[in-house]
Structure formats: structure tokens, C-alpha cells
């Protein structure tokens, strides 16, 4: 399977971060992580990274409900950053509100909406869709 180089998790819940990280390690999902506790922190750190083009994450797992800057606000800010690299964004939320699901669909940069909890299988699915995309290219 095509392993991801850098995976980024943006979530304010330390338990989720711990769990997601551990699952990624166990399933040999990626080489390294980048963790941010809210949208603002993520934007502040990702901006320079994206500009230099080094260590840019391949994919982002993005929570919606976060303090300071929530997932939607992050998306609005993130699309403004110019970058050559295509970053796959997954929204990962415990919200099953159809309003949130519809809203996620309206963002072109969002690949999919994953309802928490995530499992090893979820991660495997993400990898296999990436492979399909790669082979299609």
C-alpha cells in the first residue's frame, strides 16, 4: 500500500489525537504527523510550510467543532493559501447532523466526511482511495 508521508490532524480533543495517532502507527499509515489543536494554530503553522513547499502534509484530518477557529473557518482560510501541492482534506467529526454533511459537500477541497469514531478500516479505506487516484493519474 502507498504509505502517506506526512499526515496532519487538526482536533482539539487529546483523546482523539492519541487514538488517531496510535491507529496510524499500528496500521503503518504514514511516516510522520503534524498535530494542531485548532484551526488558527493550524493556519499559523501551515502557511509558512505551504509557502516553502517543504514537509507539506499529504492529507489533513479536520475536526469541525473546535475553539478559536473551527473547521469551516479553517477551510475558508486554507483555500486562500497558494500551493502547488494538492492536499487531501477529510472532515472527521462526531456530528451526524445532515446540515454539517451538506455543508461539507459544498467545499471542493473536502474529499470526504468521516463520522467518528475512526477505525483501522477507515484508515485503510483512505489509503486505498489514494491508490486508486494515483493509478488513475
Amino acid at each position: 500500500m502507498n504509505k502517506i508521508d506526512v499526515a496532519c490532524i487538526i482536533d482539539d480533543d487529546p483523546i482523539f489525537i492519541f487514538g488517531a495517532k496510535r491507529m496510524m502507527e499500528l496500521s503503518d499509515f504514514c511516516n510522520s504527523f503534524m498535530i494542531f489543536k485548532n484551526g488558527q494554530e493550524a493556519i499559523n503553522n501551515l502557511k509558512p510550510i505551504m509557502n516553502t513547499g517543504e514537509q507539506v502534509p499529504d492529507m489533513i484530518l479536520l475536526d469541525i467543532n473546535m475553539p478559536i477557529m473551527d473547521g469551516w473557518e479553517f477551510l475558508d482560510e486554507f483555500v486562500k493559501i497558494e500551493s502547488h501541492k494538492l492536499v487531501t482534506i477529510y472532515i472527521v467529526s462526531s456530528s451526524i447532523d445532515p446540515v454539517d454533511l451538506d455543508r461539507a459537500k459544498r467545499y471542493k477541497s473536502v474529499s470526504n466526511y468521516i463520522i467518528k469514531p475512526i477505525s483501522i478500516d477507515t484508515l485503510k479505506d483512505i489509503l486505498s482511495t489514494r491508490e486508486e487516484k494515483d493509478s488513475a493519474l
Partner: peptide, 25 residues
């Protein structure tokens, strides 16, 4: 109800995920 269910859901999600990790780890 939305808030309660959402908050409960996230805690449940964490519990479920942790159990998965325990199973593997």
C-alpha cells in the same frame, strides 16, 4: 438535544476508538 447528543457522541467515539486500540495494542 443536539448539544447533548453531539457531546455524548464524541465521548462514545473516543471510547470506541480506545477499545479498538486496546484490541490491537
Amino acid at each position: 438535544a443536539h448539544i447533548v447528543s453531539h457531546n455524548l457522541r464524541s465521548h462514545y467515539g473516543n471510547l470506541d476508538m480506545l477499545l479498538d486500540i486496546v484490541k490491537m495494542d
